[in-house]
Nucleic acid binder design. Sequence first.
DNA 1: CCTTTCAGTTAGTTA
DNA 2: TAACTAAGTGAAAGG
Lengths: 266, 266
Amino acid sequence: VVNLEQNKEPVYLVRQPTVAEAASALQSAFSKHQVAVVIGCCKVNYEGRASSTLDWGDRLLTVKADGSLLIHRPRGHEPVNWQPAGCLLHAEPTSENELKLRAVRLQPREVMEVFFDKVYLVAVLNLVDEGEFALHVSEFDARRAILYEPSIVEEGFRPLSKEKSLGESGFIDIFGEDTQGNFVVELKRVPAGKEAVLQLGRYLEAIRGRVHRPVRGIIAAPSLRREAQILLEQLGLEYRPISLQRCYEILRFSNTRKIEDFLKED
Amino acid sequence: VVNLEQNKEPVYLVRQPTVAEAASALQSAFSKHQVAVVIGCCKVNYEGRASSTLDWGDRLLTVKADGSLLIHRPRGHEPVNWQPAGCLLHAEPTSENELKLRAVRLQPREVMEVFFDKVYLVAVLNLVDEGEFALHVSEFDARRAILYEPSIVEEGFRPLSKEKSLGESGFIDIFGEDTQGNFVVELKRVPAGKEAVLQLGRYLEAIRGRVHRPVRGIIAAPSLRREAQILLEQLGLEYRPISLQRCYEILRFSNTRKIEDFLKED
DNA sequence: CCTTTCAGTTAGTTA
DNA sequence: TAACTAAGTGAAAGG
């Protein structure tokens, strides 16, 4: 029933399929770990950690290559029903000429059944996606923002060496002075954990051996993990929360208004 | 460019569209609050509470009737990028013959831009979905089930106050008597953890200060976490497993057979 | 492998 | 509207 040509096309469509055609296309997609989209009128039953029922209506069903499943209504950006990756999938026609789709998750055992009354469209997709995903306002961006607007760390903070740049293991440090004139060591990271605190501690040790006046150690990060907080206090270090949103605004401002300053300094 | 026939069909397809055709079809779908699906090779930039970039790759993009937007990779059951309902949508061709899709959320301001290199398929959907969704066996439902069939907690258990309803922090408690005539405090939750046990402990403290006879504290829940079990014993509390499936059957029975009782009592 | 914590959490409810 | 809390939370990091 299923055209083998689907292997060569990025999108293989079956419009207004019979129940048998839809089941066949889906079974084929499941076995080949392809992405499948079903658009039609369906009802859904779920039983597992909780249980739910969804009455008849038009929905968009997506089965992904990893065996995850999503059912979307026309509104609401979250799926009304879903099943996470790795569940067992099976599609078959029923005696009442409906398309039955069963997705079983083991551990915890959760069973989802979808019954399609009408199937408007089945699309089997061969999607190639190796693109890298990156959540920005990285350490580097945060550093740029702090250098441009040091007050987000502390009022009166003045960075001194902008060229210390990357320490080992990807940390970026900023040296500077506070209002009392004490040297300040800066280290910031995205979600500061124990390693970040220990890293700063080791850094401070090294610096205190050379510099003969009090040195404060401050971690500037969007958040500080619970376990890191204890360690921070034990080592006598400080923490300063940094809003990534704020960094972002600073950078955008600096990019649009004072590009020349950055070209000179950085 | 866009065939007006799309209004009459549940699914209106544009295969291998030109950039102009795709943009036109999408703009039309946006204005009519239809659901649109785009399959193609794209890259994504997001800026808002955080910021992210996603390099080129084949993805499934869905725009819903309420202006929400989802971008799904071939794997992973969560969207790689998204935009919640109510954002401003715009689709247009770029000078580099790419399809640019812009989704702006106001408050907080978040901007997402999708660039399609190749568009394999645009589908505009007219989905009619009035089906009711019901999550069975929530805390409230479990409470109703226990009040209707108290023996699932303990043989001879008799609820006294059905109107205590929601305690602070969303917990629902049931007070009653057991066969020895002792007062019994009930607290049930879906997967009982430490917080639930501590909550019950605090509750019991308060009650023991007022009531001058022994009070048992029982947690009724589908399961009890390992760490919560230790705490439970330390505090001298009890645990009674509750089957959600059983609650569901009880409620279904009560709904079909004894609706009048519930109208009187609840 | 289990537990804890974070998330562009989202979504619902209450003050 | 803001604050709080639960979620079929999911996902990553720590022990």
